[in-house]
Design a protein around this nucleic acid. Structure first.
Lengths: 216, 216
DNA sequence: GCTTTTGCACTGACCAGTCAGTTCAAAAAC
DNA sequence: GTTTTTGAACTGACTGGTCAGTGCAAAAGC
């Protein structure tokens, strides 16, 4: 028996439907994300996911049509969290009256915080993003575009405000920035975990502000 | 029942080894790299690899002890090519008397050229690099360190020559730079293939030189 | 006459997905 | 207020298929 009642934690979903089911799905997401990040999608078995979630295999199939559907919904779920967090950071920085480049910097930090909190998800996202020929390719493209678009918006605003040169290539620069943050953060976690988030943020910030080689 | 040991150990390859065998291995590498990039390691079957290489399944096992050994050797092979190419670019730039930051720029371009030539390998490398718990983890760590070290060397030289501030965090900055190039290039291939290599190079160069937000 | 490759049958493990049956809390009936 | 019914949620043994790796005799290079 658990002391805590399953209170209605969740969304205003369609209707006041089952909290229980939602909790099960959440457990499955959490189990799946770490396993898939560690081993990859095909190397992870449904039995493993069920076991780690503390649930019977049948339950997985009661809640999701298939292994890959589970994965796709997991992706949507996770990128939703990421873009929300990036947007919030940008908005806050904007409200505080800063320049757009400060918003950019705030987003870098938000990205790092996100990765620090959900390292497994990030790992899995990067590993699957550029795979061709897979069922969830289209899901991933949509979801990537959402994230990159947030950065593009800020870059565009910065150009509009005259903070950045009009010469910059917005889509390419946005992609490069996102990549820089993702990879730097994963490397930090994997190979230099002793560094602090502030260290990493400072290094990236410096790169962005041109204090690495931009002397000119 | 016992005497028929297929003595396969040969190990002393060095140079004069059989050309035929080498050609077979090369075909297997090429077949494996694209299949694994597309589908991932576990989703790719040995039968598929053999078929695409135009070779019998037995041949795969005559040349490699197992599927994962084939993969590990493939990784070593590929990263060898990459670091050689980066080093060469840095050396050439150094000989041409340029500053260290020019060497950095040359390496970015070399990275892009490499990725353009071997997109499948890059894809596969990024997908596997941060996976924990896998047999080839240690192989990958070694191999990553080789690549990053080339960049670190140039950064260190640049600081020594006073071209870069002593404040920069060399390992973190090197990792971020490598990440920026990798991700920007993969994104370019996957989502904006119409852009030219020069476009991508220019965007990254600008970022590095601080002409994106470093105006201050 | 070695090394290398082929072709193919075989095995044993493993795994996605299924389905008949169980559980239990809340609604309905009494 | 007690008993009965209902159905969503869950269970886990089972199935049909897949795949890494083996064994080996014969052919093809070199």
């Amino acid at each position: 028996m658990n002391g805590s009642k399953p209170v209605k934690i969740k969304t205003m979903e369609s209707s006041a439907s089952s909290t229980r089911r939602e909790a099960t799905r959440q457990k499955l997401y959490e189990a799946a994300v770490t396993l898939i990040a560690e081993q990859g999608f095909s190397a992870t078995t449904v039995d493993e996911i069920a076991e780690r979630a503390g649930v019977a295999k049948g339950t997985v199939y009661y809640n999701f049509a298939s292994k890959s559907v589970l994965f796709e919904e997991l992706l949507r779920h996770g990128v939703g969290l990421l873009t929300a967090s990036l947007k919030q950071a940008a908005d806050e920085a904007a409200l505080e009256g800063g320049r757009q480049v400060d918003a950019l910097d705030a987003m870098i930090r938000a990205g790092l915080v996100f990765i620090d909190r959900y390292p497994a998800f990030t790992q899995l996202y990067v590993a699957e993003l550029w795979r061709t020929n897979r069922a969830w390719q289209s899901t991933l493209m949509v979801v990537r575009q959402q994230a990159v678009a947030v950065v593009e918006d800020v870059l565009r605003a910065a150009v509009r405000d005259g903070e950045l040169s009009e010469e910059i290539d917005i889509p390419l620069t946005a992609a490069a920035l996102v990549g820089m943050v993702l990879v730097a953060a994963l490397d930090w976690q994997a190979f230099q975990p002793e560094r602090s988030l502030d260290d990493v943020h400072a290094a990236l910030s410096r790169l962005l502000q041109g204090r690495v080689s931009g002397g000119r």
